[in-house]
Nucleic acid binder design. Structure first.
Lengths: 197, 197
DNA sequence: ATTATCTATAGATCTATAGATAATGC
DNA sequence: ATTATCTATAGATCTATAGATAATGC
């Protein structure tokens, strides 16, 4: 009790980081303020010195989520890896069993598309901004005219989000053959389609 | 008060129908028992004579949702409409603004993928069964060997679900240009890809 | 007599606030 | 003196149950 202002910034970031993970794991309605504070190592009383409301934390947590593509593409470009190869890596990473099994650290659209669509204007605006950035990142990896690259990015992103969403549903506790089939089938199709266009 | 057993069956179905719509609109956690009963024209007290728990209603409501594809494909086949044309109609209907704006009457995956993935085994099993049936319906519309048709169905379904999910997020209250771009771009790509394969 | 639905409410949980406590920072 | 966090709790909301009411159905 009684901490410095510097500590408060750290505390604030820790709450946001915890929320960014837990909200993707449990859905935007699936986790309460007290639970989030406890997981951040705090108690519920301090919450409203950091945020005006639960909704404000949700918006801030969503806005804080940076796409894993951002640093991955930057690193690969810096190493002069060809765009086509970078694209293959993104697709394989996105449609991996690791990503499927770690929604809290993964794509915000695959984890929360329904919640985002149902959300208020603030939440949908954050989602739209992230979507536009993701499309830009993808389109930059495709050859040819800008319009065609953007269309390819839209189709690719849709297939990625849909495949991961369905693969997460098809996870039977015993057998996830269907789930793996979805991941591998869509990964192969996207890669060959993008290469051949 | 005091109704016949025949009425009770009707009441039960009305609750399930109301839940099937409202849960797709608000998410599996977004609507309470009292609200659902009120919308079905009832009060909360009678609920537990129909269902053991809220979870049981959720499972029953999800199981009751029949894909719009089921009767559409059956009708079209009865009229000897070519498979390729049936497929085009399914895609255009799925990626329409009407479907986007009516989640309560639409695809359960686009509306609830996150909730289904996070759901208990019962919920995920219902989802997986519906997914398998949808893939079967789609695959039956494609020419050639069974394995290839199934793969095409998986890729198609993923792109459909992903595109509709993203189109629902991108609905700015003022301008939905991006949303419409996603719908039309993915519809065109799916149709030409499936025709050319 | 049985039962389908109603009103009323118990008990749990969730958001938000009040007031206490123990540090920081002028 | 200020403030970052804590404990405690008010008030709202949600699931589930108890008991009353008014029909059905033997």
């Amino acid at each position: 009790m009684g901490r410095s202002q510097a500590d408060k910034v750290e505390t604030h970031e820790k709450i946001v980081r915890t929320a960014a993970r837990r909200l993707r794991e449990e859905g935007l309605l699936g986790v309460g303020v007290a639970d989030l504070m406890k997981e951040a190592g705090l108690t519920v009383g301090g919450f409203y010195k950091h945020f005006e409301s639960r909704d404000e934390l949700v918006a801030e947590a969503l806005a804080s989520i940076e796409s894993a593509w951002e640093p991955a593409v930057a690193d690969a470009k810096a190493k002069a890896i060809p765009d086509a190869k970078i694209f293959v890596r993104l697709v394989d990473g996105y449609l991996s069993e690791e990503h499927r099994d770690a929604p809290g650290a993964g794509c915000v659209f695959a984890a929360l598309s329904g919640d985002l669509a149902r959300g208020g204007e603030k939440v949908r605006r954050v989602g739209t901004r992230k979507l536009l950035r993701g499309l830009e990142l993808l389109a930059d990896l495709f050859r040819g005219p800008r319009a065609g690259a953007r269309a390819t990015a839209i189709v690719t992103y849709s297939a990625l989000v849909g495949a991961l969403s369905l693969a997460r549903i098809a996870t039977d506790d015993k057998d996830d053959a269907l789930s793996r089939e979805i991941l591998t089938t869509v990964a192969r199709a996207i890669k060959s389609w993008a290469a051949a266009r």
